[in-house]
Amino acid sequence: MGFKLLSKLLVYLTASIMAIASPLAFSVDSSGEYPTVSEIPVGEVRLYQIADGVWSHIATQSFDGAVYPSNGLIVRDGDELLLIDTAWGAKNTAALLAEIEKQIGLPVTRAVSTHFHDDRVGGVDVLRAAGVATYASPSTRRLAEVEGNEIPTHSLEGLSSSGDAVRFGPVELFYPGAAHSTDNLIVYVPSASVLYGGCAIYELSRTSAGNVADADLAEWPTSIERIQQHYPEAQFVIPGHGLPGGLDLLKHTTNVVKAHTNRSVVE
């Protein structure tokens, strides 16, 4: 069995187990497998329904001669939608809004960016022009300005110390501490036991640490421990890039980060 097929099978099995364990909360999309990078042309966006009122959005972007996937989250909030992270750029984010209108038909009224990198804030200006209120932590807003990236308009308070959590509509926002970046936030959907790890969490097929220019490698494993301790009931975990899975993604990420750190020390 090929690795790609095995990865998709694991996603399907995880979703099936969740649907059985929580039949009222989960209505997993039966329309197909989780979209992969090879299936999404740059400039297009796919939506994948995880649970009743919960979707991931998947886009792709060219970077350094390669094409990478990027995940975000959409959560229903009454007759409105909360968006977590842009679709990595203005063109993708405009396509995301169009796809949401086509498939869901509810307005996106608020959006949260989970850290300051372009795959999370690139497209904020498109959201703002569409009347979406954009939010991020003060740290993310400051770092985005320093980096020359787009800056969300509103500040999220109460997320300055490791372990801080605040309720934001249908989700809980959690600051686990520094990891992929010093400002990275985690998003949890309690009604569906869905954990969105953003770039602080890796997919299972990833074996290298990737972009760690703004990471705190020493603190990252401790931050992941905080996530595990705060959300032990999480059933569906979405990484910032690639295929979702279960809580095993947290341990896998820790292993990859520690291996990278150990290699760096040896070198």
Rank of each mutant, 00 (worst) to 15 (best):
1 M>Q: 03
1 M>T: 04
3 F>Y: 07
5 L>V: 15
6 L>P: 08
6 L>N: 14
6 L>I: 07
6 L>R: 08
10 L>K: 10
11 V>E: 05
11 V>D: 09
12 Y>T: 11
12 Y>C: 13
14 T>H: 14
14 T>V: 05
17 I>H: 04
18 M>D: 12
18 M>W: 09
19 A>Q: 15
20 I>D: 15
20 I>Y: 07
20 I>G: 15
21 A>K: 15
22 S>Y: 07
22 S>H: 08
25 A>F: 15
26 F>C: 10
28 V>G: 10
28 V>K: 06
29 D>H: 09
29 D>C: 05
30 S>T: 14
30 S>A: 15
32 G>W: 10
35 P>A: 15
36 T>S: 10
36 T>P: 15
40 I>S: 14
41 P>H: 13
42 V>E: 14
43 G>C: 05
44 E>Q: 10
44 E>Y: 07
45 V>W: 01
46 R>M: 14
47 L>E: 01
48 Y>V: 15
50 I>V: 11
50 I>K: 02
50 I>C: 00
52 D>C: 04
52 D>T: 11
53 G>C: 05
53 G>V: 07
54 V>Y: 00
56 S>G: 15
56 S>N: 15
56 S>M: 15
58 I>F: 15
60 T>M: 15
60 T>A: 12
60 T>F: 15
61 Q>F: 08
61 Q>S: 08
61 Q>E: 04
63 F>Y: 07
63 F>W: 07
64 D>S: 12
65 G>Q: 09
65 G>C: 04
66 A>W: 04
66 A>E: 15
68 Y>L: 12
69 P>T: 15
70 S>D: 00
71 N>K: 04
71 N>V: 02
71 N>G: 03
74 I>G: 02
77 D>F: 07
77 D>P: 01
80 E>L: 05
80 E>Q: 13
81 L>I: 12
82 L>Y: 06
83 L>E: 00
85 D>R: 00
86 T>G: 01
88 W>H: 00
90 A>D: 14
93 T>R: 00
94 A>R: 14
95 A>Y: 15
95 A>K: 14
95 A>P: 03
96 L>W: 00
97 L>W: 02
98 A>R: 14
98 A>L: 14
99 E>Y: 12
100 I>E: 01
100 I>M: 06
101 E>Y: 11
101 E>C: 04
103 Q>I: 13
105 G>K: 10
105 G>H: 15
107 P>G: 08
107 P>M: 08
108 V>R: 03
112 V>I: 09
115 H>N: 05
116 F>P: 01
120 R>L: 01
121 V>P: 04
121 V>C: 00
121 V>T: 05
121 V>Y: 03
123 G>D: 05
123 G>K: 04
124 V>I: 08
125 D>K: 08
125 D>L: 07
126 V>Y: 09
126 V>N: 05
126 V>A: 07
128 R>K: 12
133 A>L: 13
134 T>C: 01
134 T>V: 05
139 S>D: 13
140 T>N: 04
140 T>V: 03
141 R>P: 05
143 L>H: 08
144 A>E: 03
144 A>D: 04
144 A>G: 06
145 E>A: 13
146 V>F: 13
146 V>L: 13
147 E>D: 09
147 E>A: 13
149 N>T: 09
150 E>I: 04
151 I>D: 04
152 P>R: 00
152 P>Y: 00
153 T>I: 14
155 S>K: 12
156 L>R: 03
157 E>N: 14
158 G>C: 06
158 G>D: 10
159 L>A: 03
160 S>T: 12
160 S>P: 08
162 S>N: 09
163 G>S: 09
165 A>Q: 14
165 A>M: 14
165 A>V: 13
166 V>I: 10
167 R>A: 10
168 F>D: 00
169 G>L: 05
170 P>E: 07
171 V>R: 02
172 E>G: 03
172 E>P: 02
172 E>N: 04
173 L>T: 03
174 F>E: 00
175 Y>I: 01
176 P>C: 00
177 G>Y: 02
178 A>F: 07
178 A>D: 06
182 T>P: 14
182 T>V: 11
184 N>S: 03
185 L>T: 04
187 V>D: 04
188 Y>T: 00
189 V>K: 00
189 V>Q: 00
189 V>Y: 04
193 S>K: 13
193 S>A: 12
193 S>I: 06
195 L>H: 05
196 Y>E: 02
197 G>M: 01
198 G>L: 04
198 G>I: 05
201 I>C: 04
204 L>V: 13
205 S>W: 09
206 R>M: 15
206 R>K: 15
206 R>S: 15
207 T>E: 15
208 S>T: 14
209 A>L: 06
209 A>Y: 04
210 G>V: 05
210 G>S: 04
211 N>Y: 07
211 N>F: 07
211 N>L: 09
212 V>F: 06
213 A>L: 11
216 D>G: 06
217 L>Y: 02
218 A>Q: 14
219 E>D: 08
220 W>M: 01
220 W>C: 05
221 P>K: 08
223 S>G: 03
223 S>L: 02
223 S>D: 02
225 E>Q: 13
225 E>Y: 10
225 E>P: 02
226 R>P: 04
226 R>Q: 08
227 I>F: 05
227 I>M: 10
228 Q>D: 08
230 H>R: 15
230 H>T: 12
231 Y>C: 05
231 Y>A: 01
232 P>G: 12
232 P>V: 09
232 P>N: 09
233 E>L: 11
233 E>P: 04
233 E>T: 11
234 A>D: 01
234 A>F: 03
237 V>W: 03
237 V>Y: 04
238 I>P: 04
238 I>G: 01
238 I>Q: 01
240 G>C: 01
242 G>P: 05
243 L>T: 14
249 L>P: 02
250 L>V: 04
250 L>Y: 06
250 L>A: 00
251 K>N: 10
252 H>Q: 05
252 H>K: 04
252 H>D: 02
253 T>S: 08
254 T>G: 09
254 T>Q: 10
254 T>R: 11
255 N>V: 12
257 V>F: 07
258 K>I: 11
258 K>S: 13
258 K>T: 13
259 A>W: 09
260 H>I: 08
261 T>F: 09
263 R>F: 11
263 R>Q: 14
263 R>Y: 11
264 S>Q: 13
265 V>I: 10
266 V>M: 11
266 V>H: 12
266 V>T: 15
266 V>E: 14
267 E>W: 09
